[in-house]
């Protein structure tokens, strides 16, 4: 056989097989093992800590407690408040209202006569569980018809504070914004 025939034919496959022997020396695996052990330890610690957080007893309590608390809170909010009848609120003059609210005196209509919601036989179903409709006062005789609506937060059935507001028929029907709103700079 000639020397030429002895020679191996070089193909893509034989060249690629050369790459099989591109490999690291034995020492490489020692450092590889050390590094790997360190990284695995790190991963183990990390995994444990995450597991502790996710399925640990504190998390379980938290995970179960929060929805339960939310449900209780929701039930409390949406249950109609069977509160005792609101104390009759009688404020004869705007000054009295001014004394007990944050609305400046000059913003309160002088003729406003606030009467108790009970006295006016108001429809109590209109009173939400968040606000109790205290009073509505209609004064057709005056130059402009005012309607005064007072709301008080349900939990505090006392004299209305800044939550009260005034609407007059004219402005609310035409412009949707009351004059009092504009004066007080309120945006309902």
């Amino acid at each position: 056989m000639s020397g030429k025939q002895d020679r191996q034919k070089v193909t893509v496959e034989t060249l690629l097989h050369l790459k099989k022997n591109e490999r690291p020396k034995a020492e490489f695996w020692d450092s590889f093992e050390r590094d790997f052990d360190r990284r695995r330890l790190h991963a183990l610690v990390e995994r444990r800590s995450w597991r502790d957080i996710i399925i640990g007893p504190a998390f379980k309590a938290f995970a179960l407690g929060v929805p339960a608390l939310a449900l209780v809170a929701l039930a409390f909010v949406w249950t109609p408040v069977e509160s005792p009848a609101p104390r009759p609120l009688v404020l004869d003059k705007g000054n009295d209202l001014a004394e007990n609210s944050s609305i400046p005196t000059n913003e309160i209509i002088a003729q406003a006569e606030v009467v108790s919601a009970m006295d006016m036989n108001l429809d109590t179903s209109r009173a939400s569980n968040q606000f109790v409709l205290d009073a509505i006062q209609d004064k057709p005789d005056s130059r402009a018809r005012f309607r005064k609506v007072l709301y008080t937060p349900a939990i505090r059935l006392t004299i209305p504070s800044g939550a009260s507001y005034v609407r007059d028929n004219l402005s609310s029907s035409k412009y949707k914004v009351t004059t009092a709103d504009v004066k007080l700079g309120r945006n309902f």
Partner: peptide, 14 residues
């Protein structure tokens, strides 16, 4: 790159 180990058929190809 890693060093190519010259072994067996590799040596022949080279």
């Amino acid at each position: 790159l890693e060093h190519i180990q010259e072994e067996g058929s590799n040596a022949q190809v080279l």
